[in-house]
Simulated assay, not measured.
Amino acid sequence: MIASLRRSLQNIALRGVVTLVNSATKMQSVQVSLREGELKDSLEHFEAYGFTSNPKAGAEAVTLFFNGDRSHGIAIVIGDRRYRLQGLASGEMAIHDDQNQKVHIKRDKILIETPLDIEMRGNNVRIHGNASLILECNGHGEKWLPTHKESWTIGSTGASYAINPPQIP
Score class of each variant (00 low, 15 high):
Ser33Cys: 14
Leu34Arg: 08
Leu34Glu: 08
Glu38Ile: 14
Glu38Phe: 11
Leu39Ser: 09
Lys40His: 14
Asp41Ser: 12
Ser42Lys: 01
Ser42Val: 01
Leu43Ser: 06
Glu47Arg: 09
Ala48Ile: 15
Ala48Pro: 15
Lys56Val: 13
Ala57Gln: 09
Gly58Asp: 11
Thr63Ile: 13
Leu64Asn: 07
Phe65Thr: 03
Phe66Glu: 15
Phe66Ile: 15
Gly68Glu: 02
Asp69Leu: 01
His72Glu: 07
Gly79Asn: 15
Arg81Met: 05
Arg81Ala: 11
Arg82Trp: 04
Gln86Val: 09
Gly87Asn: 06
Ser90Gly: 08
Met93Ser: 14
Met93Trp: 10
Ile95Ala: 04
Asn100His: 13
Lys106Ile: 00
Lys106Phe: 04
Ile110Cys: 04
Ile110Asn: 00
Leu111His: 07
Leu111Gly: 01
Leu111Pro: 03
Thr114Asp: 03
Pro115Arg: 09
Ile118Ala: 04
Glu119Ser: 10
Glu119Gln: 12
Met120His: 06
Arg121Met: 05
Val125Trp: 04
Ile127Val: 06
Gly129Thr: 08
Ser132Tyr: 14
Leu133Arg: 05
Leu135Val: 07
Glu136Ala: 13
Glu142Val: 10
Trp144Tyr: 12
His148Gln: 12
His148Trp: 02
Thr153Arg: 09
Gly155Tyr: 03
Ser156Cys: 07
Ser160Val: 14
Tyr161Cys: 00
Asn164Ser: 13
Asn164Thr: 12
Pro166Gln: 10
